[in-house]
Design a protein around this nucleic acid. Structure first.
Lengths: 354, 354
DNA sequence: TTGAAAGCGCTAACAT
DNA sequence: ATGTTAGCGCTTTCAA
């Protein structure tokens, strides 16, 4: 190749402008219609499966789509269909609770399920009293449905969702009695675990530390606990039941109280509380289970790693997530779903209560 | 009120049909244009600020928008503007790594920053070798930009992104040398911590346990470690350096080796490895720091809770996230940004190495 | 400063 | 079975 003064020496690859031409003009319905000498309506029908298209045309379209690497523009689809193929997941962003591995696991389950069904997942962060992100998403119609991962007493979010008439599923009991919910059997699980400690494990003085009672899940836990205590013919040990414990400082005092009042066993409301508790116990030189037995109403991968192993209820957060997503997508597709789904639990009896 | 046979007794609230009328027809540009007796073009201009509108018209529009509770339909906006106001966040979904609190924290930072600038966050889960979710999102044009939270050696994701010509930011060093990156000073931090242990802390036999070397972050860590060792006039203790440790089983054997080879101190590559290590040490009755000193190249809220407190490098994952988002949004708005941003670290010297 | 009309890329009546 | 045409709700030339 002779390179004149104004010439360009072409490398082996394509030039920049060639690349631009190939890539920047994204192929769309019209392109493949023209290529095949048919109308875009037919192409659209071949793709969606709605309306009749001859088997041959369809396969030609399918083929061509792959060849030309076509994929539909969601914005135009959404505009025409009033459907985004997105769902929103409301996740708490408050410091102190948002760290809980539950939400991450749950989100994983949701995302995986959605991906399988051609949906995408939008994160909606809410802090206590700040629903601006949720409101923005609702107003802009960016999602077809919503999953609540931490329903609160009062149901402010549910109210917003109902007003917008957007379908939603709540992971955990909702204040909205009409809401579709998917929940772990917290109530039942806590009942079982508490009963076990009381009966089989002959614990005398039982303590309980629960987080914020704004969370419906903590109410379920408490109910299960109370049922078990009363079922064992005892009265709820109000002296050693601590509700609404939501700071490390507060927890520190609670633990002192526990010892002062002679508790031989303490149940922690969830994994985070339990980890803090274990840590605080170690810091004051107390040994589990010698000085005090410890159990948790919720397990997690982190809790799994402690030694001694902690007796706990095991729920699969990612299953909850994927089931929630599955339910929501069913609803969006117009299928009937049951109003309340409950997933089971596993009781892990381990050294911490022996 | 007299209720005739066919009469309806109206409760105090609005009837169902009234509610339907108020809510179900979402107000749009036309509505507020008609209400004000002007064209929707003018309304559009008043809102966007593009094109001249009289100050008075503008304020009337603004007022009316608030009154009628208007908010634009994103699908139509996107179609017209080729802009979604969404960004995608790629998060690893592989079992065993996706649990790391880093990604959750990072995501929080991203979401918060995006919300402030009127963007929403879409979760894109990738597993090793499975980029289908990413490809789907790219093809459908659901996001304006992408954040990679765990860049890998080889840069397959970066390649996909480059082909699509979608702007992206990588949290951590990228194989794509042109990529915009935001990173913690891992290299420097690991250098400092290792140097400290070697010099001030007079550790003789140092061990190192790192996760998968596919992750660019682990390469940075290793570089810092090596620099420090050589800077101290020593040679890298290959006998006690374990790279690519990515399972608990593997870790178990590593820890046995550590003791066999007489290590007096071990550095863990990250918080997850460190937690497992602490747990395994406890399980075989080893006491920190009496039997072995322990440090970590990455801190996290969970590690914070252990006792004894663990010497570690502290980086703020949520800051990384929000900075990444901020950079990406700047790029999307056409601002110039620096190609490489590095956030500092904090060295937490604690009991585990004393 | 404002309005009319075309167009973003798709779907869906309604024809043929 | 396939094509024509009219939107979906916004932005944006181009006129006035």
């Amino acid at each position: 190749m002779t390179a004149k003064s104004q010439g360009i020496i072409r490398k082996t690859g394509r030039t920049r402008s060639e690349r631009m031409n190939t890539n920047s003009k994204t192929v769309q319905l019209d392109d493949i219609a023209r290529k095949l000498g048919i109308s875009k309506t037919t192409v659209s029908r071949a793709i969606s499966g709605k309306g009749r298209v001859s088997a041959e045309t369809r396969s030609r379209v399918i083929e061509c789509i792959r060849m030309m690497n076509y994929s539909p523009n969601m914005a135009s689809f959404s505009l025409a269909e009033k459907k985004t193929n997105n769902i929103g997941v409301i996740i708490p962003m408050d410091d102190g609770e948002s760290e809980a591995p539950f939400f991450q696991d749950c989100l994983m389950g949701i995302t995986k399920c959605c991906a399988l069904r051609n949906y995408d997942t939008m994160v909606i962060g809410v802090e206590k009293g700040d629903h601006s992100q949720l409101i923005r998403v609702l107003n802009s119609h960016k999602t077809d449905g919503i999953i609540i991962t931490r329903p609160l007493q009062g149901g402010t979010m549910e109210q917003l969702l109902s007003e917008t008439k957007i379908p939603y599923v709540s992971v955990g009991q909702s204040s909205d009695l009409d809401a579709i919910t998917i929940d772990s059997a917290h109530n039942e699980g806590c009942y079982e675990l508490t009963s076990y400690l009381l009966m089989n494990n002959s614990v005398e003085k039982l303590g309980l530390i629960l987080g914020s009672m704004d969370q419906t899940v903590n109410r379920s836990r408490y109910e299960g606990f109370v049922r078990a205590v009363e079922g064992a013919g005892q009265t709820v040990p109000v002296q050693t039941v601590f509700l609404g414990v939501n700071s490390e400082l507060r927890l520190r005092r609670v633990i002192e109280d526990l010892f002062q009042r002679g508790c031989s066993c303490v149940i922690c409301g969830d994994d985070m509380i339990c980890m803090y508790t274990i840590n605080l116990l170690a810091a004051i030189g107390k040994v589990i289970p010698r000085d005090i037995k410890v159990a948790s109403f919720y397990n997690s991968i982190y809790l799994d790693m402690y030694s001694p192993p902690i007796t706990a209820l095991n729920f699969r957060a990612s299953d909850l997530g994927s089931t929630a997503a599955s339910l929501l997508l069913d609803i969006l597709e117009g299928k009937e779903t049951s109003r309340e789904t409950v997933l089971g639990f596993e009781m892990l009896i381990r050294k911490s209560t022996m």
